[in-house]
Design a protein around this nucleic acid. Structure first.
Lengths: 150, 150
DNA sequence: TTGATTTTTGCAACCATGTTGCAAAAATAG
DNA sequence: CTATTTTTGCAACATGGTTGCAAAAATCAA
């Protein structure tokens, strides 16, 4: 985590944001590939790192980081939204794979949703896809991935 | 709408639910194929049909109808959930197409998400897909579908 | 480095919505 | 039609989104 401080600082500055402790921790939390957290999970994690964090401050920083496209919201189901570091992806909405074992949320840009999959006459503007299952690493019985959670 | 009262009553009874005015109106609202409404939209529509509806009553009935699988929630984006009449579909999650012109939400069971679309080792348990675009009817300039909204 | 300026934070406060308990009203069964 | 069960509407509380404002922190310039 410590090794990434410079990278995180650069990322924030590149996006025109001042560097504050909360922002650094927020980005650090989501820095790990596959990491995607709910607001509650973020709140609990920040609690540990920084002591209690004001919910308004968290709210404003999440909103700001979204505006600056540092992070994205991903609706997992009707009652759950996760936050994820925005990759260098062009499209806002690209497919994700959620591993029910290790809880990682991985980008799956190779999965394409195209008009020829639909009946005639339908035009696609964008699409949103989440695939739920078990990822390649967790799927090897000999070398199971540690769950991120717990 | 009137012609459907018997069908709606049967549907409710088949699911083991008593028939009340709110439940009938709720199902009637979502009866039209492609109809999918947010809670706010439902609230406003019921307002017109029944006068003001208590939000707790609406909340409890939506929850009940979901438990009985009469309706489903569909997360459209991070801040929007729509309710839709549950079809005779086996799988809870099946692809939908949302028309940005007429606002209809159509089931697209012909679109399949399969493991061979993923890198090796990934196993699919379920998937959730919403395609945003223009539907076949709205796509014919000569005969545009009336928007459901307005 | 220090002090001035700008930005961010933390708090009070408000609103919308989820959720429960309870008594009154409505639906169902006999 | 009446008795019983279910549902509704209301009060009340919890949670999370949202704003304004003063204190604290970060940035900038000398």
């Amino acid at each position: 985590m410590v090794a990434k401080i410079n990278e995180i600082t650069s990322l924030l500055k590149d996006k025109g944001l001042n560097v504050t402790e909360i922002r650094r921790q927020l980005v650090a939390l989501l820095w790990t590939p596959g990491s995607a957290l709910t607001q509650k999970e973020i709140e609990e994690a920040l609690e540990q790192e920084l002591g209690s964090v004001d919910r308004v401050t968290l709210y404003r920083n999440l909103r700001l980081l979204m505006e600056k496209q540092v992070i994205h919201q991903i609706p997992m189901d009707a009652q759950t939204v996760k936050y994820k570091l925005a990759g260098a992806h062009k499209k806002v909405d690209h497919p994700h794979f959620h591993c029910s074992h290790c809880d990682k949320l991985l980008c799956m840009p190779q999965v394409k949703i195209e008009e020829n999959m639909l009946p005639g006459g339908f035009v696609i503007q964008s699409s949103h896809l989440i695939i739920e299952g078990v990822c390649d690493l967790c799927n090897i019985p000999q070398k199971p991935e540690e769950p991120l959670k717990d």
